[in-house]
Design a protein around this nucleic acid. Structure first.
Lengths: 352, 352
DNA sequence: ATGAAAGCGCTAACAC
DNA sequence: GTGTTAGCGCTTTCAT
């Protein structure tokens, strides 16, 4: 097998401890000793066995990130940001996906694999507060996303109600009156889309428009196909909204596809706003106006939170609200000039 | 800290070995013993410490997957498939990304973090054969993707030349004559897009059309913005192709966006074929015709290959070529009826 | 400043 | 069938 500390020690004619000291940059080592040991290390091609180190220290240097679906670009982009952020702190990320299934989310949150990971970042969809009781408290948990929990864990999420209100408010300011919401969840006692739906209601009410439940379209999942189907269902039952606020960009993109197929124009007949700011939205045939959460910051905060807990800083569980922006693009009829080619030049409205 | 085997043994009044036997489902244990131990396990909430087990067995149960970019849906979807496939074999996946940078790819392939992982699946872009010499042979490596290496490692990739030829052949059969290739790499001595470009050349030649280098557009990266920029550059220098074969779907989508902005229609003026079959392509305003590698199979083969090596099956390094299909959609003008709403009903041509 | 030895939690010989 | 015990490779008191 591999070369061990002992082999190096033998080769260098010193004790194991000394080699360990050199490897770990322990300050009090004679330069001469250090050189001798280093030479043995180089000659033998020694590489520390992290598993052993971890067993000893009780840390693995690995954190887990569990998201619903890597196929959803929002989560893929977020995962990428988390990996980068973790690497910055010499941590590696084990990525898992739950398909948004409560059962899977429970499994992950209850510390499935707990002995391999130092901490967990979880973005749940159908997990409930009661699932979080009796967790193995030795593995810190940071929650991400819209769902709210009555449990003592750090939670990082933008202000979903405010963001949704801003999206709907934008539509209202454009003169839209029949604003649909697509992406509520079918037949669930608890509503994952709760906050965004709530924001939709509040803003409409504030604008003096009656929130019309006939304009709320449920979906089975959160993908493009779900958005397309829900939009079709809405139109099929005779509703004719003049705007759509979608739970996320994928649903919005699916909905736009259906609108086009039905001969309706975006934003002419129907204006559309999404949520997430995934890259696809910037290159759609009609660029999508959307709420852009600050993914970098979310990733950074999540990792930092976790590492602070790991470092043993007690602190109260924190509720952190990163920034977001409303990016106004073609799908709501505002087309700032000269940004066609890059897909970068977004017009931004009020920050969160 | 946690509950250990010893604690359970003490509680159950048996030896450590017996507990270990129960935990590992060792066959020769009396049902009575087993029940007693199981009860102690339940009462104490014992969970085996994987780190210790791994130190002992020399295995970690973790494999690493390194892809260029999780933000590219192809790799995100592939990563998802690998995670599922690994889970089926009780393995966990550590996901890393290299940004397609040679330096990062070298780092990963040379076993950065090697002691934590049992094996590595790497999808390189700029890695060279010489970077692969002198690897730590204890960590098996499986290569994915278009790049070819003169090195003794398993390699899983569809037949890129054949696939490219099929894509271009499809365009030719539609009567297109000026077929551009977008996505060759700028200023590189070695060409990552080598095989697909080669297929493009071969097929054109076979069709009696002269491959025209003026119709080859280089990109800096492999994203939508790169495709949009390259398409714009091509048009700006006065070329007017009647078809585009793009290195991948993202580039194709970017290119389509530019075409629309320039007032050209797809597929009327310019037919477009991509490569990857990412989900975005199925919901684009004009659905993208593309080469669809069988991602599930690629993931399965990659994991299986790795596990076989791990199991110590010696075997020659294998070159495996999974299936692919040409999915004909709207962007090349063939719009089979009745598949507008689902985004699933793809028309498929000859398999790979 | 360096060495000797204990032990992290587990598995696998080997004994009984 | 079940118990004893020796490590896996490392860090860490405790001596020296």
């Amino acid at each position: 097998m591999g070369v061990s500390l002992k082999d190096v020690a033998q080769r260098a004619g010193v004790s194991v401890k000394t080699v360990s000291n050199v490897v770990n940059n322990y300050p009090h080592v004679t330069p001469h000793m250090r050189a001798k040991v280093q030479q043995a290390i180089d000659e033998l091609g020694y590489r520390p066995n992290l598993t052993a180190r971890h067993l000893r220290k009780g840390r693995t240097g690995i954190i887990a990130l569990a998201v619903p679906e890597l196929g959803n670009p929002y989560f893929a982009e977020l995962a990428g940001a988390v990996i980068d952020e973790a690497a910055r702190h010499d941590y590696t990320v084990l990525v898992d996906h739950t398909a948004g299934l409560r059962e899977q989310e429970v499994l992950v949150s209850q510390g499935f694999r707990s002995h391999v990971i130092d901490g967990l970042i979880l973005s749940p969809i159908h997990l409930e507060t009661e699932d979080l009781t009796g967790r193995d408290e030795t593995v810190p948990l940071v929650l991400l996303g819209e769902r709210e929990y009555e449990a003592p864990y750090d939670h990082i999420a933008i202000d979903n109600v405010a963001a949704a209100r801003e999206a709907v408010g934008h539509l209202v300011s454009l003169g839209r009156r029949r604003i649909a919401f697509i992406g509520s969840r079918t037949g669930r006692e608890r509503q994952p889309a709760h906050l965004r739906l709530h924001g939709w209601r509040e803003e409409l009410t504030a604008a003096g428009l009656m929130p019309d439940d006939a304009l709320v379209a449920a979906t089975d999942g959160y993908g493009r196909a779900d958005g397309a189907a829900a939009m079709a269902a809405l139109l099929d039952r005779g509703e004719r909204p003049d705007a759509v606020f979608a739970y996320n960009d994928l649903i919005a993109i699916g909905a736009m596809r259906t609108l086009v197929e039905r001969g309706l124009t975006v934003p002419g007949d129907v204006a559309v706003v999404g949520f997430d700011d995934i890259e696809d939205s910037r290159f759609a045939a009609v660029r999508l106006t959307t709420i852009a959460p600050d993914k970098q910051t979310i990733a950074r905060l999540a990792v930092e939170c976790l590492l602070e807990r790991l470092a043993g800083h007690p602190a109260e569980p924190r509720r952190t609200r990163p920034q977001y922006r409303l990016l106004v693009r073609e799908s709501t009829g505002a087309v700032p000039a000269g940004q066609h080619l890059t897909g970068r030049g977004d017009a931004s409205a009020a920050p969160g």
